[in-house]
Design a protein around this nucleic acid. Sequence first.
DNA 1: GAGTGAGGGATTGTTGAACAATCCGTCAAT
DNA 2: ATTGACGGATTGTTCAACAATCCCTCACTC
Lengths: 243, 243
Amino acid sequence: MTKSDWLSELRAEAPRLGRASTAGRVADVLRTRITEGSLAPGTRLSEEDIGAALGVSRNTLREAFRLLGHERLLVHEFNRGVFVRKLTVEDVRDLYELRRILECGAVRRGAERHAGTATAERWPALLDAVRAAVEEGEAAAERGRWLDVGTANMHFHQAVSALAQSPRVDEAMGHLLAELRLVFHVMAAPQAFHESYLADNRAILELLLAEDFEGAEKAIADYLDAAEAQLVEAYSAAGQVSA
Amino acid sequence: MTKSDWLSELRAEAPRLGRASTAGRVADVLRTRITEGSLAPGTRLSEEDIGAALGVSRNTLREAFRLLGHERLLVHEFNRGVFVRKLTVEDVRDLYELRRILECGAVRRGAERHAGTATAERWPALLDAVRAAVEEGEAAAERGRWLDVGTANMHFHQAVSALAQSPRVDEAMGHLLAELRLVFHVMAAPQAFHESYLADNRAILELLLAEDFEGAEKAIADYLDAAEAQLVEAYSAAGQVSA
DNA sequence: GAGTGAGGGATTGTTGAACAATCCGTCAAT
DNA sequence: ATTGACGGATTGTTCAACAATCCCTCACTC
């Protein structure tokens, strides 16, 4: 192991140190609350109340709000305050539109670069991540932990988009999936929703392993169409009480 | 014109009113400075100096910094300050990777939805925007305004990605192009760089009008490959004095 | 009863100052 | 040449205050 290997390994752990910012930690707390669903969409977050509850000043809290606003988990209305994001049906459709472009594009570009042999050594690790996500979901389903099935499903799609080997694609996908979490809470039966896609994930993995990239792209597109339709239907039924 | 038409037209102008935030206006000023190149990449932005120069408090200025950090025009290093983003060659490559996925994907999805006839009435307006950007660039070139040629080129690609009819794709593309502006300033000869792509833009427009969407996608991919190679070369030669 | 306008309380937007924590360059010591 | 300590400068965070804005209530008019 050469010196530069040491350094690059250490560099990978560097971000863990910089996590000292108070605003960042406040954002972490709120993010967890929101994605877990204990803060319902539409809830207004009072600067004074939350600041007092968390023991931070208003200014620091505002910085945390900006961070979460950037991730689209909160919306900031001028002179009115910040609210937990409330997604419309159009948002759901748009999120899946972007997913189609990103995920299918990631498979396509990954395949092109794989064929180019320029980055051949990274490919197995990328596919391993996909496989790990598939097995994580199957294991969670076997033990009946349906929330974990949903998490594993997100890992699966994050791993698929990672095939593009692009940090910016990874980040965009991460934000997209975090936003989607806001939607999943309106599903009455998360079991049936997530369970039905375990087989699809496995099938997509097999297509990738067989290097049938066109087939994989098509399978992902079909998956997304089906999931979008299911979500839109559930959303129209449950979420549209107002507006 | 029905009542709902009135309202939707007004709604389009609503964002112009909410621009009253001081932090937002400060961000506007700094953004212009950065994208125009008068603030060189790597420059450190002192809170005290800039706050005094612009007549705003440190807290407000910090909010403006977060906004620009979110757009990747500034980088925030904890306990060290904010700096004008300095893109590496890897960043340039990654930006073009994302552009390939977004722009080609937008054409493909736009074509699919166009064929579906569900949103047929919007299509001509989208193509008109592309045409307008092409002609804007040609007019600017004729008058020798090379900076405007670059701007028109960005409008062209923004219009192409708008074919996806997805607000989130539009926004992602907007941020991506703003980030790319940081790179263009290292080009020694912007004339030759931007000029060479005017004909490509026109050709892509013709392919779109002829509804040869596969051809258009291919043309865009080729365009991006060429532009990336040109930029990477210029960047390796000029920008890599340090690191 | 529906719509309009004027208070008034509550919340956010912004400022300025203050102190703690951290970084960075300098200089001495080994 | 590397290490360690000191000190100035900058950022991180808090606090208190005031201005600006929103929103609810209530009286008023027709």
